[in-house]
Nucleic acid binder design. Structure first.
Lengths: 257, 257
DNA sequence: CCTTGACCCTGACGTAACGTCAGGCTCGAA
DNA sequence: TTCGAGCCTGACGTTACGTCAGGGTCAAGG
């Protein structure tokens, strides 16, 4: 009656392979009360197909980073908590992602510092420290903005995700590189005007079109002497004065139109 | 002689606050031999400024996700290993990030499934499982490609980061939405031709301009009946036949030009 | 001189999710 | 019956500390 083909039972190893987990993990879930299989007279564990479903759910929630105890309560009280738990977990993961992105960025910058000029280990580590600290110290930038502009910046910072940041900084770098090749041309010419348009679009992407923020950025730029060291390093590609001057001309013309 | 202002010594708590770590962490690093401070006659730890430098390095490397034992060997043999270690660690972190992104995406899709039609917990979990599985099962797609095209796809997959994927899929969604509003218009008209151009650009972004890959994609599309369930769900927005037919016309005309 | 409070020490156990033995049972086949 | 494969439980290891517990040290006040 019990073991007809349809509801086959599985012993531990078999079941573990079926589900892609280890035997010890199954023992563990059993002890925690997460997944309690049947037993033979001799004490062997016997898993059925419904256990497989449950195990798949466990594995999925584990993949999302939930702890086994969280998973247990979620699966026990089959309830409306799940969507809420997922929302919270997503926020946790997004936070972790921001940290990860910062770490990755720090390494990348250190690596590019290595390529351009051999540095000692100590200098390399200093660079990493700078980059890490710099990233939470975008706060000092707020000093250049009027009081009521700060709230807006704070709001925009929410959307200013690391991947977006990375993309934009790449766009800036590309643009800068292209401008350099165009320095000889007429600032009123077609090429320069196209570059000016791209430039302004990027600026607008940062300021959100808000004139107060734009004014703050100009103040920030004017005060280069007082920038923190780490930021100064990172901003280096932006600072070529000839590029800047050329674009000032081109943008003035572009705005005139 | 010893405690003149310049090389001040710090006791544990003071030093911990200075560096932003806990007292217990300092004990821990001491025991592991990572950071061994001086001692007073009574056995109190005494930290100096050079200890602070070292601690900052430790904290930085920890931020990058290195284990304390790794950090120890790296800081002991002050050597050329560091750049190599950083490169490896970056790859580790990038791997973690891919997993994180998959988890976040899975939750997001489950959340949007919740919004559009209330589902039970069980259905929600099934959805998550599908999304997770779908993401490593892009492999089945390879069946539609000729042998020599596979290597190219494998190569492009390296650059095909989750954030890039997310961006592109949003671009597709935007494009699709706009096409739908244009269905009534002349496929040879200006609007439709602009859409066709955008479409082809996105296709090229995926195929990398390789005709073999493009051919594989066509075979893939033609064989919709055999797609895995998870993929079919996620591809749903792409499947509106009227959109597809309309764009076929528009693209044919666009190519003719 | 003694006490008080703030700070210091070490050692031991706890955490999460198992991995890894170690010692001992069960089962089907030869 | 015996062998090898597979099963069981219990205990310790892992990481980077947190959290007591029990017990010194030190400067100031009584």
């Amino acid at each position: 009656m019990r073991n007809n083909g349809a509801d086959r039972m599985y012993r531990t190893q078999e079941f573990a392979e079926l589900a892609g987990v280890t035997v010890r993990a199954l023992h563990h879930y059993d002890r925690l009360g997460l997944l309690k299989p049947g037993r033979t007279g001799a004490g062997y564990r016997l898993y059925c197909v419904r256990d497989l479903e449950r195990l798949e759910q466990i594995v999925a929630l584990k993949f999302l980073g939930l702890s086994l105890t969280q998973i247990k309560t979620l699966l026990e009280r089959e309830t409306i908590e799940l969507p809420e738990a997922l929302r919270m977990q997503r926020q946790v993961l997004e936070g972790r992602r921001r940290l990860l992105d910062r770490a990755i960025r720090a390494i990348r910058e250190a690596e590019s510092a290595v390529k351009s000029g051999q540095q000692t280990d100590a200098a390399l580590l200093k660079k990493i420290i700078e980059v890490i600290e710099m990233q939470d110290n975008t706060d000092w930038m707020l000093n250049y903005h009027a009081e009521d502009a700060r709230a807006k910046i704070e709001a925009r910072r929410q959307e200013w995700t690391p991947e977006l940041q990375e993309r934009t900084s790449k766009q800036w770098a590309d643009l800068m590189a292209e401008v350099e090749t165009a320095l000889g041309e007429d600032p009123a010419g077609e090429r320069a005007q196209a570059l000016a348009a791209r430039w302004m679009k990027l600026v607008e992407g940062f300021t959100g079109g808000d004139p107060e923020i734009a004014a703050g950025v100009r103040r920030l730029y004017a005060d280069q002497a007082n920038w923190p060291a780490g930021f100064q390093q990172q901003a280096k590609p932006f600072l070529k004065p000839e590029v800047w001057r050329y674009m000032e001309k081109a943008i003035a013309i572009w705005k005139g139109k």
